[in-house]
Design a binder for these strands. Structure first.
Lengths: 156, 156
DNA sequence: TACAGATCATCTGTCAGCCAGACAATCTGG
DNA sequence: CCAGATTGTCTGGCTGACAGATGATCTGTA
C-alpha cells in the first residue's frame, strides 16, 4: 500500500463493486436454504428484529417495491417460515411474524452468512474485520432509512 | 456502539446493502453524464488504466456478459468517448481506446464520483475514510479477478 | 349516519434487461 | 486445407420490476 497517495489507491465504487460481486456470488453458491435468496434472508432478519411489521413497512425499510413484497412474503409463508395475520388495529394491514421454523432456518442461514463473510473478507485479519464492521456501522447509523422498527407486544 | 458484542453490531451484508443502495441512488441522482451510467464509468476507467483491451477482456474484468458489452461499447463509441479498431494481431478482436473527449468526460465524471463518495461517507471523518479505503483495497487485492490490465504500446 | 379521500395488500399488464444460442469472421493446430 | 476454438454481433425467450387499477379498510368531515 503506497502511503504517499492513500486516497488514490481505491475508489469507493470499485471497492464496493468487487466486494458486493464476491458477496453475492458466494451467497448463492452457498445457498441459504431460504426462498427469495438474500432478500428472503433480509426479510426474516428484519422481522426478527422488530416484530409485528406490516408489509409496507418492511418494504420501505428494505427498499423493495410493495408489489414485490407480496410474492416474497408469499414464498416465505408457503415455506412456513412466517405468518400473515390481519392487524387488529388496522385490518387492511397484515402483520408478519416469524414461526418457530422460521427462527430455526434464520439461525442456520445466519451461520452460513457468517461463512460467506469469512470467505469474502479472507484478505483481512480479525482486527481489520472489526474495523470494517465498525465503519459500516457508522455509515448505516448516519443514514435515515435505517429506521429501527418499533416492537409490539405480542398480545393477540 | 455496544462494545460487549462487537461482532453483532453490523452484519457485512446489511452494511453493504445500505452503502451500495445509497451509492447507486446518489450516482444516478448526480448523473455522471456518461452513457451506460455507472457501468459506462467503469469501462472508461478500466480502459484508461490499461489501454488496448479487447471487449471480452473488459467484459471478463468487469464481470458483465460479452453480449452486453457490445451495446455498452456501442453507446460509448456513438458518444465519441471511445474508439473501436481491429487488433492487427488478432482481427477478430476490437481494441478499445479512449478518445480525448473520453478522457475529459472521464475526468469530470471522476470528480462527480468523488462528490458521491463524500455524500455516502458523510458519517465518517477523513481518517476513517482512509481506513475504509485501505480495507477495501486489501480485499480487492486479495481477489483474483482484479487482473491488472497489460498495457500496450500505442504504435498503430 | 353518509360521504370523500387516503392507505394497504393484491392483481394485471407492460416494459426493460439479461442470457443462451446461432452466426460470420478469424485464429490455431494438425 | 480442414476441424475446432475464439471474438464480436444478432435474435429470441425468459425473468423481474414498476405503473395502474381494484377491493377492503381507515380517517376525517359534515
Amino acid at each position: 500500500m503506497d502511503a504517499t497517495t492513500p486516497t488514490a489507491t481505491t475508489e469507493l465504487g470499485h471497492g464496493l463493486d468487487v466486494v458486493v460481486k464476491s458477496f453475492l456470488a458466494t451467497v448463492d453458491a452457498v445457498d441459504l436454504g431460504l426462498p427469495g435468496g438474500h432478500r428472503g434472508y433480509k426479510i426474516l432478519r428484519f422481522v426478527e428484529g422488530s416484530t409485528c411489521q406490516s408489509q409496507i413497512r418492511i418494504a420501505a425499510a428494505l427498499g423493495v417495491d410493495r408489489t414485490v413484497m407480496t410474492y416474497l412474503i408469499d414464498e416465505l409463508e408457503q415455506a412456513g417460515l412466517v405468518t400473515r395475520r390481519p392487524d387488529p388495529q388496522d385490518r387492511r394491514a397484515r402483520l408478519i411474524d416469524l414461526t418457530d421454523a422460521g427462527r430455526d432456518r434464520l439461525a442456520t442461514a445466519r451461520e452460513r452468512m457468517a461463512q460467506v463473510e469469512r470467505h469474502v473478507l479472507a484478505g483481512l485479519d480479525e482486527g481489520e474485520v472489526d474495523q470494517l464492521r465498525t465503519l459500516l456501522g457508522k455509515i448505516v447509523a448516519h443514514h435515515p432509512d435505517d429506521g429501527p422498527g418499533p416492537l409490539c407486544s405480542i398480545s393477540g
